[in-house]
Design a protein around this nucleic acid. Structure first.
Lengths: 247, 247
DNA sequence: CGAGTGCTTGACACATTTCAATTCTAGTGG
DNA sequence: CCACTAGAATTGAAATGTGTCAAGCACTCG
């Protein structure tokens, strides 16, 4: 699963291209973007609240999360990002970070300078649109998470999250036989769905008991996609994957 | 409070201009945007999930909300919008609406065709940036709401919401003497902060009892901003108002 | 003045949190 | 290769925030 090892930017190109085909020139421009690749252990901050970054961070391998803290130290994970995502693309236009970003699993990430991104956006307006759209899909996921956390109970929330993960990982080729890696701790899952880790544990047991998921260590198996979808009240519309290629 | 009555677009221009000054040409282009103005009663849908709009909706007067429904009919309000906002700007790049938008109070709204917006974005890249930024601020608010709903209890959530409202309404000149109109039902407030209307009622009583807000009908008075801020665990960073004009 | 809608209140049910202890697991160094 | 250990998962029991139900009250508007 060493996605995009030859050219780190390939992952990003493939993803942007699912929206509308890119010209050779546009692809070339993306391919030539200078990118500085780094590896990280799990649980390391990549960007912090209050930072004024001059670069964006492209996930190449592993998982990262966007999180915020309450003044009493409670953590809410706002978003999970998988290879191909740019979790702080917003920083291109919002000077100060209003959230932190951390690695959840060991990660490879690449940093791209804002100025370089701005340059190719100026030259290729369609790339601007593509990047803009990326941030809009992120926002759409936030909206669904708000519904999920605000109006569904923990069992459903968790099922919903698993559905989303399955679909998003499938989209980047990280699912085989309804099985995917979920290198994330129960305490972290709790921070995602806004409950306690104890409750996450119980909810996962219930889901397993109902035959909706099986766990093999860090691996998740979804034996019955339709059943999980129903349990999670899941409609993939908000991921805006369908409309890809319909430009 | 008939904001922007002469030229409906003026409101939008004023808001975009808080980010960086616009050239006469850019302002002219915005001013000339064809816009179709309509008035609405409270509680009317403006756009619905599944729609594929060919226009965006600019709020001129009144309040609107973005909402989503659970399959069992529970509603979560994802966002509240005030005059000057464009709640479905996302539709410029996401074909299918993943949420609905409704008026909360009687409203005046203006519709702007996507093609017109696209045209001036092509011609004036800085306007693209400005619109993009608008959607990024929306997303930032989603993030804060996720923290709010996921990790704070109802009392704090409500205080936080009031803080946000006060600041956002101040930014568009709709606050006088720490007083602002909140033409929104308790049931709707419940849908905003993800609780029941009964609980909203009790929480509001508690806030009043603690001297954090006073209510005069539909009006809200905030006698002690610092105290409310603390009660709401509120830090305005996420609204990205400060950095305006620092271009 | 009636009617409807929104607000308020009380009592009870229940999902979820918190605390605390125990078991399991993976990674480390000897 | 095994003992050791820190972190993660699991379990139980009690505390609590919040939802639900149901009824009464109070506006507002025609």
């Amino acid at each position: 699963m060493t996605a995009g090892s030859l050219f780190p930017n390939t992952l990003m190109i493939r993803k942007l291209e699912t929206i509308f085909p890119l010209s050779t020139e546009e692809k070339q421009a993306l391919q030539n973007l200078p990118i500085q690749v780094t590896t990280l252990k799990a649980g390391r901050d990549i960007v912090r609240v209050g930072d004024r970054p001059s670069q964006c961070c492209l996930i190449l391998e592993g998982f990262t999360c966007v999180y915020k803290l309450t003044s009493v130290g409670k953590r809410q994970i706002i978003a999970l990002h998988v290879p191909g995502d740019i979790p702080d693309l917003q920083s291109l236009h919002l000077k100060v970070m209003d959230n932190s970003i951390a690695s959840i699993s060991p990660c490879t990430v690449g940093f791209i300078q804002h100025e370089d991104l701005r340059r190719i956006c100026e030259r290729y307006p369609r790339l601007t649109a593509a990047f803009w759209r990326e941030t809009l899909v992120d926002a759409s996921i936030f909206r669904e998470w708000l519904l999920n956390i605000g109006r569904r109970e923990a069992y459903t929330r968790m099922a919903h999250l698993l559905c989303e993960f399955l679909m998003r990982l499938k989209a980047v080729g990280l699912v085989e036989d309804d099985t995917f890696d979920l290198p994330i701790t129960q305490a972290e899952l709790a921070d995602v769905i806004g409950t306690s880790s104890v409750h996450v544990n119980r909810v996962l047991q219930a889901l397993r008991g109902d035959g909706l998921v099986q766990t093999k260590g860090k691996q998740m198996v979804v034996p019955d996609w339709e059943k999980l979808k129903e349990a999670g009240d899941f409609d993939p519309l908000y991921l805006h994957l369908e409309e890809a290629g319909t430009a």
